[in-house]
Nucleic acid binder design. Sequence first.
RNA 1: GGCUCCAUCGUCUAAUGGUUAGGACACGGGCUUUUCAAGCCUGUAACGGGGGUUCGACUCCCCCUGGAGUCACCA
Length: 486
Amino acid sequence: MVTRTRIAPSPTGFMHIGTLRTVMFDYFLARQTGGQFVVRIEDTDQARLVAGAVEGLLNTFKKLDLDYDEGPVLLTDGTLGEKGDFGPYTQSQRLHLYKPYADKLLTDGNAYVCFCTTERLTEMRAAQMAAKQNPRYDRRCAALSPDEVKARQDAGERYVVRMRIPEGESRFVDAIRGEISFNNADVDDQVIVKSDGFASYHLAVVVDDYLMKISHVLRGEEWISSTPKQIILCEMLDIQMPIYAHVPLILNPDKTKLSKRKGDVSVESYLAKGYLPATLINFISTLGFNPKADQEIYERAELVKLFDLSKVSRAGAVMNIEKLDWMNHQYLMQLSQGELVAVVQPFTTLDLSSLTLQKALMIERERVSRLTEFADKLSSYVSIASYNPEVLVWKKSTKEDSLLQLTNISNVLSLLEDAVFDSVTLLEAAIKEYINSNGLQNGNVLWPLRVALSGLEKSASPYELLWVLGKDETLVRLQQAQKLIG
RNA sequence: GGCUCCAUCGUCUAAUGGUUAGGACACGGGCUUUUCAAGCCUGUAACGGGGGUUCGACUCCCCCUGGAGUCACCA
């Protein structure tokens, strides 16, 4: 089976985290079957246009290293172009393509012109609500004569085109949920052409999916209830319906649909918080989809191979941020030094070309989960903040002893060969040897040494600090500590 | 409210009629340890309720309950 899947976001200026999941599922499906993954921009609502939104969206695709086969592309000069044989891929440029379909619906009697004003519609709904009826169009214009319609159109009266929902039942087999059916009596006469001449979502999407030969439509669960309108349109237009799969919602901790108010909704904000693209993709792809029972970390290629629409769960899922943090830490630990430098650099003003900081990065990632936390961790390697001399004293020791140990270890370290400073293991061996052969306690030596090197109560081990700082800086810091405590 | 979808640890999930209901995050305890982190071992914690079907139900059916989504000239 070769699939053509598509993602069709409205250009709001950012990518919703739920959209990312749908994108991933589309991507897996297309790559797995050797099919195509299409990006289409659904911008039929002129009132909601956001400047630069499409560029932003495509940029996010780029940041996540997600490739698609057809759709708008960002050209090197910053302008928009597109690739693929089924364009244009932006709905506002496809108005002429929707027109014949709308006309056919009208001439077949499957749609009708409606002159009702927004005010009347609002009043009508209010009255229906007051009477405890379901709000829906009352079909006042459904029986207008062709002559009257023409006369009023000629007079310049504003109008929309509505579907004439037939009696009967609409059913489809959802690839995730199985059979779903609706009584058409519960479906409203949907507007399919707006008064500004733009097709509404329902018409545009049905026509586009058909013309673009889309085989699989993956979208959020919130679309289930509008599916009968699209099924009916397909029937009226006599076109093949794609396979629909409604992906479960991503939820706030209180189990309601994820909203800005209650949490981060955009991919960009997670990126800005310091989650790696790979983490985000792994995490979001396995939210509601579990390839193997006892594995959490997956390569993208693995997911492509293992993805199975029928295994996607049907219930919504709360994002477990602690687990996201944990996962990001796992990914951070897998990076090479070069990769780590590259991903952290945008999150700090420090210049990470310094070897000391690169080493510090390798050490500090052990206790960091998000990229934003590095800047803080790195500062003590650049220069030591002023600290309370009492911190230099181990809880089981005394000030005098601490000073003595600092003085002695300083001498020992100054005599070590430079090569020893190139290895944490060698440093550790050398210091342990010194402690043991002199019958000292670890804490008496290691605690003051570590604090002298970091200025912190909590830090990496003294061996790691020595490795990062190097001999010269180490001796300087030990000097300062001795002065401070003395 | 109508319609629709959904229902296993706090959270994400595994189980496709027969398991001591498994894993992950988080949390507790222990080991390691100069501190922090990591690591290792380990513990607490779930099938919403009621009926069926069946020799046997987390798994299939029905009802209830609960939750969610949706009811625009927004997508």
